[in-house]
């Protein structure tokens, strides 16, 4: 007799749904893929067909070009794919991010969370709890040392630093999809209504957020073609973390290097990156939210995809919950 655990299996290409004939966030090109969100390790180019939220499809097209897949299908309510029904639900991670619910009428329901967060995020729709038999969850920050603080408190540290060092530029490292826009929205909420300068790599995704109704305000390119170095004194500049090692960062006056990431909780991590002002702002669930989500959804089984799965499995064991690691390879452990 088949059970809900027959809904999913691990293949070299990634997580596969045999009755549906599709993969979820595969790491290699496949015929049919359902994609949770637009981060590069989950959303890859070159599949035969992709089903995702319209925003995720747009983001993939922005990143990879219009021909990133053979055919596209916008997720819209419950849709039948072969023997299963699938639906997409907000994950609160980045714009367009979704959990994928898979239902088979005789065996049950599985929910694949993708990456998710339960903190309020002004740049995307909030996480929606979906009851299920099998919860397939991420575990990026699954250690009890991770308790993300109030992100507005972290933003207040930037503003205080600008006040203390008005001659220095403040460079905030933030990933191009999601984190950058969230940091900008948080700055706006904290009352910073002046211009925010952005690295060229953030431009198109910021434009797209604005087109989707996320009011990022006055954004300007962080170039010095027409200005001089001192124009950036006391200003906020956002760029992808990779740009900070490059000569790009040298154009700013005595910059204070900030980095917005959940990993900034751990001092050694911040120091390894040469960060002077660590900002603990994460788009993933922290330990209390992760364990609370499992308790709340109360699935019959919890499957753990990527991250610190050992700790989450241990917690499940202590709670008397059935759980197993999927040990999916190919996802970036450290991106946040």
């Amino acid at each position: 007799m088949s059970t809900a655990s027959d809904l999913l299996e691990i293949r070299p290409e990634g997580l596969y749904c045999p009755p549906g004939g599709f993969y979820i966030d595969p790491v290699k090109p496949v015929d049919k893929a359902l994609i949770t969100h637009g981060h590069a390790d989950h959303a890859r180019a070159g599949h035969g067909a992709v089903m995702a939220t319209s925003q995720t499809l747009d983001i993939m097209a922005i990143r990879y070009g219009e021909d990133f897949t053979g055919s596209r299908q916008i997720a819209n309510g419950a849709q039948v794919v072969n023997d299963v029904s699938v639906s997409f639900h907000p994950a609160g991670h980045v714009l367009g991010s979704a959990q994928i619910k898979i239902t088979h009428k005789s065996t049950g329901t599985a929910v694949i969370t993708g990456d998710y967060s339960r903190q309020p995020n002004p740049a995307c729709a909030p996480f929606e709890p979906i009851p299920c038999d099998i919860l397939v969850t991420e575990a990026t920050f699954a250690l009890p040392v991770f308790r993300h603080p109030d992100p507005l408190g972290e933003i207040a540290r930037v503003l205080a630093s600008i006040e203390a060092f008005p001659d220095r530029a403040h460079l905030i490292g933030a990933y191009a999809l999601g984190k950058a826009q969230r940091v900008i929205m948080l700055l706006r909420m904290a009352g910073w209504d002046g211009p925010i300068f952005i690295h060229g790599a953030l431009q198109r995704l910021c434009d797209y957020h604005i087109s989707q109704g996320v009011p990022l305000g006055d954004l300007r390119p962080a170039t010095i073609d027409r200005g001089k170095k001192s124009d950036f004194a006391g200003q906020i500049i956002l760029g992808p973390p990779s740009a900070f090692a490059a000569t790009w960062a040298q154009r700013f006056p005595d910059p204070v290097i900030c980095f917005a990431s959940g990993w900034m909780q751990v001092r050694a991590r911040a120091r390894q990156r040469g960060v002077e002002l660590p900002l603990i702002i994460s788009d993933h669930v922290d330990w209390p939210d992760l364990t609370q989500t499992i308790t709340e959804l109360n699935p019959a089984e919890t499957w753990v995809t990527h991250g610190r799965e050992d700790a989450l499995l241990r917690w499940c064991e202590l709670q008397g919950r059935k759980a197993r690691p999927l040990r999916l390879l190919g996802y970036e452990e450290e991106q946040d």
Binding site: V145, V266, R314
Partner: peptide
Amino acid sequence: RVDPELFAMSYDFVGDLAETIALIWQP
């Protein structure tokens, strides 16, 4: 206060005993 296995995993990740306890302690 904390399950020893979860503590050991946390310490292994954080790499500093005082910091691990400071972070893992109930707020």
